[in-house]
């Protein structure tokens, strides 16, 4: 193959992605009736389950997705918020219901910290992306003359996330969004393995992010 063709193949490979199916359900009880103003939004991951953990990367992705599309919404980073209110939002101590916030605010220092952060909405995201069934086989070898792989592999990924929106000023749950996505990735290998990855978590992130953005921007 001519060097020019290799260059074209090399440029196309990163754009190859597998197919992803996504489903989004939204249930909104009370949409915002006034502008966010200087208020902020914090997005936090639920980490109570024993067999999975909401990925910090996913929380960052949703925050970036909203921040990139509407710069009037001030998103507080998860770690920044957890550190600012340590030890009250660790998995062991985090409030499980909006009513629990009332008890938390009885602590003077905690109430002051919340006031300084100007938190209007607290969004809890619970879920994870898991690897499903995989099939195929690949053999790689290396020798003095070089190395290479031959074979084919495929696997599926499933993402399921639920976002719960708490209105901090009303101490009430005002919305719930769930998103699921699944996709099949492929990796054919003839000398070089060519990964064709289905962006399952990224699609779920976009789905949740779009719905949250719609909710948070509905008053603007």
């Amino acid at each position: 193959m001519k060097p020019g063709r290799w260059l074209v193949v090399g440029m196309l490979v990163p754009w190859l992605t597998g197919c992803v199916n996504a489903t989004v359900d939204q249930m909104v009880f009370n949409s915002p009736t006034e502008s966010m103003g200087d208020a902020s939004v914090v997005i936090l991951g639920r980490r109570h389950a024993s067999d999975y953990e909401t990925e910090p990367d996913f929380i960052r992705c949703v925050g970036s997705h909203i921040g990139a599309r509407d710069d009037s919404i001030r998103i507080i980073g998860e770690l920044e918020f957890l550190n600012a209110l340590y030890p009250w939002f660790e998995p062991r101590t985090a409030p499980l219901r909006p009513a629990d916030l009332e008890k938390l605010l009885e602590h003077r220092d905690v109430a002051q910290k919340f006031a300084s952060l100007q938190t209007r909405y607290m969004i809890w995201i619970d879920g994870s992306t898991v690897r499903g069934e995989s099939a195929g086989s690949m053999t790689c070898g290396i020798g003095p003359g070089g190395g290479g792989c031959f074979g084919f592999g495929t696997w599926s990924d499933d993402a399921s996330y639920e976002a719960t929106i708490w209105d901090f000023t009303r101490r009430a749950e005002v919305g719930r969004i769930s998103a699921t996505a699944s996709g099949q990735s492929y990796m054919p290998a003839v000398v070089l393995p060519i990964p064709i990855i289905a962006p399952v978590q990224g699609t779920a992130c976009d789905s949740v992010g779009d719905q949250l953005l719609q909710f948070l921007s509905s008053d603007n």
């Binding site: 957890l82 550190n83 600012a84 209110l85 340590y86 030890p87 009250w88 602590h107 003077r108 220092d109 905690v110 910290k113």
Partner: peptide
């Protein structure tokens, strides 16, 4: 590094 606790 660990954050300072917010408490009385």
């Amino acid at each position: 590094e660990f954050p300072d606790p917010v408490m009385n």
